[in-house]
Design a protein around this nucleic acid. Structure first.
Length: 672
RNA sequence: GGACCCGUGGUGUAGCGGCCAAACAUGCCAGCCUGUCACGCUGGAGAUCGCCGGUUCGAAUCCGGUCGGGUCCGCCA
């Protein structure tokens, strides 16, 4: 017996009474030693008098040999052992016979010749293959038996990767003088933004807590408290419909810094991201450091997205100049497209152009845009492919898609050639930079639609044509977002991001209404042109996070909230605590929140964040393993002073907005 | 709230009106095997095709509903 019985003295020593080494540890240099291993039986090969099995733990796999002649007792046990049994076994670490080494295993030079073998736990036949990493398995099965799924190599590796990510984040922040502080999970409901999860209070019957959508207000209060630099790996909750990249609870890296400007935060976050990326995925090259920084306007103009994937080009090209230049009598020097954009989209209406194609003319005349992207090598696209792309752009609100093919001989073809004429087609292709073999795709529509549709098309084509290097990490910043967006339904300016976001200093004068009364906003207000000190970080076409420098002056904050449609009473009710805090000396501050789940998923080459979460929920918000959510015990209802009025009545209440009294008696719950 | 896709032995698939009391691979069980590593060989068990209803002489197959899972739009920082 070689059990290690001395007390654990080194933190990095994983030895226990059940093992002296892990299954990924032993090498050729350990040959001749005695060792004890514990783990799960990964695979078993029975040759009668000689039984091999691979023993697995999260550190690796080691082959164990049991010889009937050497150790008959162990052999008898090995004959009973099945896949996924938990065993502990001891014996001699032996170099394998020459020619039988396994280069696929880190431990492949050696094997453990079992002298002692003990079954610690038997196992039923698992519902899916644990020992085949590539086997396709229905995801709902994986979720139902998540503990078995995590035993499998791919899931285990992703969780380890995520752990490394979080550790690297913590290291970087601690080194940079950040203080890690936990904020409460039971807080106050703020009925703005996403829907809150609600927790009824037993001690204060009739009232509820809300789970935080993010620790936004709390971290700002920490700045008022003088904490200077705060961060947290924070769990956040949002009761909205789910997607592959959205779960009801998710994790953010939340941070806030005092005495900062936009660049201070962006520079720190960028340095942190570079360091973390290099530490966690050293094999993945960063496309550009320092990260490109686009204004929101520029990102939309060039990529049609506020989270562009910069791993490939395919930029959006404004085709109006080329169309107009080829129009006899058009003002060549006017170059209306550039200036027009900044002063307003209506400038086009003045000179009704005639491109020869009424769709283009109409778009330009009504302040719209004619823009395109070049799909490399797609000139020979079939009618079916074109139809498919047309259907794609229609889904996102475009009325149609014009294509111009440049064949390998350099000749241009297009269904609208008969309207535009050869010269204009050529001019279009030239302006777009389409080479022989390329396909130019054109959308003419309102500016927002043109950008959005082409942005989505760019992303889709990039995917289909495999233009992006999957290894590469292309981070970029997008900032100077519009401060507000007009909400016609409620007659107010909605904060495009965070209601506390500050305005860029040169736009501060714009935070006013046309009427002069900040409590009477209208769509013509100068406030609509104000830009926020708001920045987003994007990675490979995904929004990784966003933040802002906040408004720390109470007067400005009140003005901004007024524009956002909050009455003074409502302001006090929702944000009274933080408004009061700002009266006791608030430092200029700003921060950011990054989605840890998305970040980990991107590092793990996954598009679905469930793949980097240990116990995620389904698209309908259920946990297939725990069978959550479940009906509460009637006693719990009573303690909380609540009555259940029935599913139908509850649904009716939420739509009709009136209480229904026709539910089943109190305490009854829907049957299963 | 809406649209679409999927549901067949334990697992992954095939079958898409009768030839199907359902096929293949793998897994499982039993036997044999002293150098395997996705071990091999021989034999065996295992699914009324998610559920309910309809059409039909006949339904895994067609239709409707429902449940479960997924994707997208809306929604969501």
């Amino acid at each position: 017996m070689t059990d290690a019985t001395e007390p654990l003295h080194a933190l990095d020593d994983l030895a226990t009474p059940y093992r002296t080494a892990t299954c990924g540890q032993l090498r050729g240099t350990d040959a001749g030693r005695e060792a004890r291993l514990a783990g799960w039986v990964h695979r078993r090969r029975d040759h009668g008098h000689l039984i091999f099995f691979d023993l697995r733990d999260r550190h690796g796999i080691t082959q164990v040999v049991v010889d009937a002649h050497e150790s008959p007792a162990a052999h008898a046990v090995a004959a009973r052992v099945r896949v996924e049994f938990v065993v502990s076994t001891a014996g001699l670490v032996a170099r394998r016979l020459p020619g039988t080494e396994n280069p696929k295993l880190a431990t492949g030079e050696i094997e453990l010749r079992a002298r002692d073998l003990e079954i610690l736990s038997e196992a039923k036949t698992p519902p899916f293959y644990i020992n085949e990493p590539d086997a396709p398995i229905d995801e709902s099965l994986r979720l139902r038996y998540r503990y078995l799924d995590i035993r499998r190599e791919p899931m285990r590796d992703r969780l380890l990767l995520r752990a490394n990510l979080v550790r690297a984040i913590r290291d970087a922040h601690h080194r940079a003088g950040f203080v890690e502080i936990e904020t409460p999970i039971l807080i106050k409901s703020t009925p703005e933004g996403a829907r809150d999860f609600i927790v009824p209070s037993r001690l204060q019957p009739g009232t509820v807590y809300a789970l935080p959508q993010s620790p936004q207000q709390l971290k700002q209060l920490l700045m008022v408290a003088g904490i200077d630099r705060y961060f947290q790996i924070a769990r956040c909750f949002r009761d909205e419909d789910l997607r592959g990249d959205r779960q009801p609870e998710f994790t953010q890296l939340d941070l806030e810094m005092s005495f900062v400007r936009e660049e201070t935060v962006m520079d720190f976050v960028e340095a942190m991201i570079v360091e973390v990326s290099r530490a966690v995925v050293p094999d993945r090259p960063l496309r550009e450091v320092p990260f490109p920084r686009f204004t929101y306007e520029e990102a939309l103009e060039r990529y049609g997205s506020d989270k562009p994937d910069l791993r490939f080009g395919m930029e959006l090209v404004d085709l109006a100049p080329a169309l107009l230049a080829e129009t006899p009598g058009a003002d060549r020097n006017g170059a209306p497209h550039e200036e027009a954009r900044t002063v307003g989209e209506t400038a086009f209406a003045a000179a009704t152009p005639a491109t020869g194609f009424h769709v283009f003319d109409d778009a330009l005349a009504s302040g719209g845009r004619v823009k395109g992207i070049v799909a490399p090598g797609m000139a020979a696209a079939s009618r079916r492919e074109i139809d498919e792309l047309t259907a794609f752009v229609r889904r996102y609100g475009a009325r149609g898609l014009v294509h111009v093919a440049v064949d390998t001989g350099g000749t241009v073809h297009s269904p609208i050639g008969k309207f535009l004429g050869e010269a204009r087609l050529r001019a279009l292709a030239r302006a777009a930079g389409a080479a022989p073999g390329d396909l130019l795709l054109v959308v003419a529509d309102r500016p927002a639609v043109t950008a959005d549709v082409l942005g989505r098309l760019r992303r889709e084509l990039g995917e289909r044509l495999g233009l992006a290097d999957p290894k590469e990490l292309a981070y970029c910043w997008v900032h100077r977002f519009p401060m507000y967006q007009w909400d016609a339904e409620h007659g107010r300016w909605d904060a495009t991001h965070n209601p506390f976001s500050g305005v860029v200093p040169e736009d501060e004068a714009l935070l006013v209404t046309a009427s002069g009364d900040p409590y009477q906003p209208s769509p013509e207000d100068p406030a609509g042109r104000a830009r926020a000190m708001q920045y987003d970080i994007a990675l490979n076409g995904w929004e990784l996070g966003g933040g802002s420098v906040r408004i720390h002056r109470r007067d400005l904050l009140e003005r901004s909230f007024a524009l956002q449609g909050y009455s003074q009473e409502r302001m006090r009710d929702l944000f009274g605590g933080i408004l009061e805090a700002f009266e006791y000396g608030a430092p200029p501050h700003g921060g950011i929140a990054l989605g840890i789940d998305r970040w980990a998923a991107l590092f793990a080459d996954q598009t679905n964040i469930r793949e980097v979460m240990a116990f995620p929920k389904t698209a309908s918000g259920t946990d297939l393993m725990l069978e959550a959510p479940s009906e509460p015990d009637p006693v719990q209802w009573a303690e909380l002073g609540l009555q259940f009025v029935g599913v139908a009545a509850a649904a009716k209440t939420s739509t009709a907005g009136e209480a229904a009294a026709s539910g089943p008696p109190a305490g009854s719950v829907p049957g299963r």
